Computed example of a mutant assay.
Amino acid sequence: MIRVLLADDEPLIRAGVRTILRSDPRIDVVAEAPDGRAAVELARSHRPDVALLDIVMPRLDGLAAAAEIRRVLPETAVVILTTFAEDDYIARALGGGATGFLLKTGDPDELLAGLRAVAAGAAYLSPRIAKRVITELAEGPGGRLAARATARDRVAVLTDRERAVLALVGRGMSNAEIGRRLHVVEGTVKVFVSAILRRLEVRNRVQAAIVAYQAGLVDGS
């Protein structure tokens, strides 16, 4: 069962999202918050698997709440669900530790797929913005070629096995899926991923996936 905390200041939006989530018997909405501060407090008490947060909320916005939840509850995955797809919001969300970014205008199945993915340890971005994250936010001020050269230098410190794991992280696979692909147990994959994040000096799987794309480890990058 995936235990979810839902935070949005609009009751009608919460009701609609709750209905979608409850259509999947594997998802349980354990708490709902009308603002960011309440979301942090409820996360502390309920310790959900996933916190699903709007961006624009009173008392504490969703981005600040996401960063605080990740700080106090590193095992809780954070997904941003918003109508805003501006680059600054996306960058701040991912920089604050969110592992998912979804749009309210997306398909309900996309929301369910995203929650299942992050609960399983993968990262998930709305298909409508994933390409922008990779091609725009990932390139940096020096442009694509400079970013690729820098990324290749960064992944050079990894072992061959770590680079193989990083490539699969870049493709959005969960630890269990990577384990099956590489024929190792899930716990071993978790150790590899932790080492990769530490050696690349990134905060989460999304940032690691960006490095994988920049370095050319993912097909089509």
Rank of each mutant, 00 (worst) to 15 (best):
R71Y: 08
V56S: 05
G97V: 12
M57I: 05
L5V: 07
R44F: 07
D35Y: 10
G170S: 11
R198Q: 13
G140P: 04
V40I: 08
A149D: 10
L21Y: 10
G96D: 10
V17Q: 01
M57L: 03
L60R: 12
V206L: 12
N175R: 09
L168T: 07
A33I: 01
V40E: 01
R3D: 01
V218M: 11
L52M: 08
D24R: 04
A67V: 03
A151Y: 11
M173F: 15
D54G: 03
D61N: 15
E75I: 02
G121E: 08
V191L: 09
V133Y: 11
D160K: 05
A31W: 04
L168Q: 12
S221F: 09
G140T: 06
R128P: 00
H183N: 09
R14K: 14
R171M: 14
Y89L: 02
A130T: 05
A7L: 11
S174A: 07
L6P: 03
F192I: 00
H46E: 12
E68T: 10
L94T: 06
G220T: 12
K190E: 15
A33V: 02
A113G: 13
A195T: 11
V184T: 14
Y89T: 03
V193M: 08
I129W: 13
D219P: 02
R44V: 11
A146R: 13
I20L: 13
A164W: 00
L115G: 05
H183L: 09
M173R: 15
S194Y: 00
A149E: 14
